[in-house]
Write a protein that binds this DNA or RNA. Structure first.
Lengths: 208, 208, 208, 208
DNA sequence: GATGAATGAGTCTTCATTCAT
DNA sequence: GATGAATGAAGACTCATTCAT
């Protein structure tokens, strides 16, 4: 879009104290982001919220983008872990059950820090690091595609990749939209049932 | 999130001359938004792009947000027209055909000014006009729900409202994501076929 | 202080209609001035308040200063009339009575449009026309000096001019300050009594 | 009159360096105010005059009014000291002498930085710090009232409070007006003599 | 390393004034 | 003459970033 700036951390924290400072700053970033939105996110606000001098902040992050970038990275990594583990665990379950598990997983993922997740999803595209956010998507997409390909014989689909694209989009969007518009629905088992139905019928593995 | 600013236009243009000015400004806003993103959108940049003095801009828009706000409103209105008309036209078609039409319609809607659509979708939360943008969603949701309810007897669903929520989310997200990540896929008939399959299988009206 | 601009009206209104317009504008100026202070006084605000187009305003007043200038002139003229007439009427009365009359007159003058008077007095110095405001002072000063000189034999003063300066300052300031700080006192006869006492004792014409 | 803005300083200077900066800025404010008047007082002009970046100015003063506000406060405090001390010192002197001292004191107070005093007096209403400026008045009023009450037996007055109001108004206005219109007169002992006469005759303590 | 004072480019926004209709 | 759309210089204010202490 415009000027692209370096976003790699200026230096790796070696001592524990530095590591703590970095964490403190990132948590402050998250708090400010949630509270004031991307527009309210000023380096000074973050420094203050972190109880750190602005100079110290710049000791660890070369600029504002790097701040957000690191936060996203951390957020994505946190999600990644859980999601990927679950995704492979599920690979051997009966299809219908697997589907349900993935959906529930997605819901849980959205429940970790919904406010932050939301701000990050909605307001962050501007940072060049939006790519980072999509990484998870990409990985999920490929894993699901692999999963479908492996069990293609029991499924009513032609192109596992295309199907994976559809399903990842679908599940992610249903959960995301529910989280956004009707947070209560996320607790409603009927939503999960119905979403499971949508997927399993498409795959030709619905019960009845 | 934070301070909400007035975004209502400052004064209604009366003469034709000023109507033109407003249009010029809005089009410039769209151009700048697409080219520079929300952060590159400065009132001066818009004025310049519109070939209008900054003063003129402020005659009609009290601030930056009002600019985007008006743009969204216009964009939504433009979409509304096409979508709603098509949605009711489709009501009497065989279910499978109707589904396909709606999907194609959604794709067409996204193809109008994809770049603008994208930036608007992504940056809208920051202007507080989310509500406005969701309006279309809401209407679609309700129309689809009505449509499903009317033909419930031929469908394999229990709750038309819940189903409508799922389907609108699904279609919108598939198209949106495709537009975002793989614009080429939007031209691929296989995507449409597959999405239609996803929906019709869920509804229990798939051919075979 | 800085740039000095022409403040003479651009053209004399010939027709009655024009005269009305000018009046309307001046009254609007007064209203805006009272309501929003000098800083809120914008030419557009005045035009709107007057129900006149900004273009028309500039037909009669070459710039903003001219507006205020004309208003002051009008205000001063209105005061002048009353004050001067009374001042000469009083010349033949017994000194003590004359004093009382002048004080009451001053109070009345301050009561005409106190809000406007206040704004004009407090906020207007900036206009080059503050001189205009002092004109009244000057005239009063000279008239009082003349009055004192004419009756010097019955008074305990040496220098009528100096005495006049003192007395005009004194009366004006007492009334002005009372109007500003304790408007109620203006209705209190004790204030008038006491001020009269102050003056007459100084002049050596107090009763007892 | 209209919107009242926060005028409290933005942050207390902690280091000596910043204390200096604040002082420099205030002095520049005074200079600019005297030279260009309230309208010429732009934050940029002050910053430039202070040899400080505009950013630094805003570190300490949230806006333009805060600048003037602080200046007034400082000015009033400076005056307060001198005036109050003198006023109590004078309490035991013979009435006539006391009067003369107070008048001379007032003249001296006006002579400290006459240009600044003038502009402050004239433009203060626009900053909303009128209250602050009146504080001194108020205090003087009460001190003089006390002084008169204490020595009521030797004076020809009934109501010490009312008399104090008259006298404070009178002296202040005579000096103020002289300073404004005829600065030379302030050096003229005859003015002091005559003003003393005005007061002492009123109080019934004039010599002959 | 930490601190926070200082910097100033960059924005938004207002308003007196002009001028085409 | 009247209208009000257009102009743009000018000014307030923010905030990412640097650097002396």
């Amino acid at each position: 879009m415009h000027r692209q700036v370096r976003t790699t951390p200026r230096k790796r924290p070696r001592q524990q104290r530095s590591k703590d400072t970095v964490d403190t700053i990132l948590e402050a970033t998250a708090r400010v982001l949630v509270k004031l939105g991307f527009d309210g996110l000023t380096t000074n606000a973050v420094a203050t919220a972190a109880g750190v001098s602005i100079g110290s902040l710049y000791q660890y992050f070369p600029n504002k983008e790097a701040l957000v970038s690191a936060l996203i990275e951390r957020h994505v990594e946190q999600m990644n872990g859980a999601v990927l583990a679950e995704l492979s665990r599920v690979a051997t379950l009966p299809m219908q059950e697997a589907t349900r598990c993935v959906i529930e997983l997605t819901i849980r993922a959205h429940a970790v820090d919904p406010a932050l997740h939301r701000v990050l999803t909605e307001q962050v595209p501007r940072v060049g690091k939006l790519a980072k956010l999509r990484e998870l998507d990409e990985i999920c997409h490929r894993m699901v595609a692999g999963l479908l390909a492996a069990r293609k014989h029991e499924l009513a689909i032609r192109d596992p990749d295309l199907a994976a694209f559809l399903l990842v989009s679908t599940i992610e969007s249903i959960v995301h939209r529910a989280a956004l518009l009707y947070p209560d629905r996320l607790r409603d088992p009927r939503l999960i049932d119905e979403a499971t139905l949508l997927v399993t019928r498409y795959l030709g593995v619905a019960p009845n």
